[in-house]
Write a protein that binds this DNA or RNA. Structure first.
Lengths: 259, 259
DNA sequence: GAGTGGTCTAGACCACCGC
DNA sequence: CGGTGGTCTAGACCACTCA
């Protein structure tokens, strides 16, 4: 078993917190690396001389921090180092669209990931109030809804739902499963809506149970949400894209002038 | 006690998950509103006829989702609705500095919060490798470190640590507790470093125990981290600011051109 | 002091995994 | 099959809050 500090009775922290701290330390200094298995519950109860529930509480603590992940029947494993992807503000540059790449795929390939998309579902529906407000249309107006899930190295890392006012999407490949080279944005530009700017609203929260399933998240792993609104050169909102990303897999980078 | 569904033995979910679901449902339909107290552990053990640990596990589930918050000796309470704050990219506009307001205070007042700062600690220290890389200096070079905590309506919502290369800070109010009107950025500009652009790296994760204390976060509440690097008109990095924000209190807004 | 949640013990049975 | 984590029981003592 790896080297761990024994309990310190004079320490005012509870035993379970001390055990959690010892394991966290082992991970931080690299005695336990990504993918390594933690000592089993029975090894830890033996080493520390505590009840099983105490050890489980310590491990629960690390799960809540997102440091480790339990696999039933196999063990508790150190979560792999963040698949840090940097999405610079230039990720929607027209240059990529001209080369025929959609934003996610272009960025993922740049950092050397094998990227993929699945669960594409396209349909038309009346728009909800919050999206309608961003699009500057009336709630209930028809929009084309495109739902999809992005994979990096086969692991789901992001779900995205785009809303495009039906009048902009009808008669284009936006209503098809495959939008063609350059994706939605290339089709919008061809349809007479050259894109001028994006507004992104970024937040973080815990996932809903459905999001946990879709992104295969363990308990205690947060999500980053980004709602992007795309405007054309007339200042008309032409798309709202609502994305939910596994937080561990993303660092979003923004570059802006001081003005 | 409020109305709750009894356990369903034919349900394939564990009792603790069923209890969690019943409580979640009560919150979602409004039988329990923000600030309301949940039935006590002993009430729930009695009602469901299960052991206390089973009830505690159900409550742990809701804590992890950020729905409720336990207060020792008082009870478990439904978390109040998020205090959403929007920080537009223009929040560091020179215009605010010229009017004598630091960024956080200007923004908070705009949305009608009573803002505050505490725990200011200023010292000089050798810089860590990750910050040094962003500042374009050598690890171990001296930097002025400014640590502070921001409050909105008396509640801590963000901690911030700024690192300024000592050569830029010495002899200015940056080394004082009170940096004067306009804050650090105004002093840097006066010292011959007019600011040109910022780069922000945004991510989300679970807080460390120390961060949970500093931001008074319940378990299961994520943080948004923003590392901002400020560049002057010569392209020199003059400050790195590492912030940790209570996720529920923030929506970050970025506006950028499509290019 | 009564009631609350926080921590802990010492067991038990189960489901899942890999050999 | 043995080892792993998942769930559960029935107690115990403690620290905190509030009347």
């Amino acid at each position: 078993m790896i080297q761990l500090d024994q309990l310190d009775r004079s320490d005012d922290r509870s035993p379970y917190l001390q055990i959690a701290a010892a394991l966290r330390e082992a991970i931080n200094v690299g005695r336990l690396g990504p993918g390594d298995r933690l000592p089993s519950e029975s090894e830890l109860t033996g080493f520390y001389g505590v009840a099983r529930m105490t050890v489980r509480q310590a491990i629960q603590e690390l799960k809540t921090e997102g440091l480790v992940m339990a696999e039933h029947g196999r063990g508790v494993f150190v979560r792999s180092a963040p698949v840090v992807r940097r999405l610079a503000s230039e990720r929607f540059a027209r240059q990529h669209r001209d080369r025929g790449k959609a934003a996610f795929l272009a960025e993922a390939e740049k950092v050397g990931y094998q990227a993929g998309v699945d669960s594409i579902r396209v349909h038309e529906a009346p728009v909800a109030a919050d999206v309608a407000e961003r699009l500057g249309i009336k709630a209930g107006d028809p929009v084309v809804v495109r739902e999809r899930r992005y994979l990096a190295n086969g692991e789901p890392v992001e779900t995205a739902t785009s809303y495009i006012p039906a009048e902009f999407a009808r008669g284009t490949a936006i209503t098809e499963n495959d939008t063609g080279p350059g994706g939605i944005y290339a089709r919008l530009e061809e349809a007479g809506h050259p894109l001028a700017r994006f507004v992104e609203e970024v937040a973080a929260r815990m996932p809903t149970p459905a999001e946990r399933r879709a992104l295969q998240l363990g308990p205690g792993v947060p999500v980053l949400t980004v709602v992007r609104t795309a405007f054309d050169e007339q200042g008309v909102a032409v798309e709202v894209c609502d994305t939910v990303k596994a937080a561990y897999a993303y660092v979003l980078e923004y570059d802006f002038p001081a003005r």
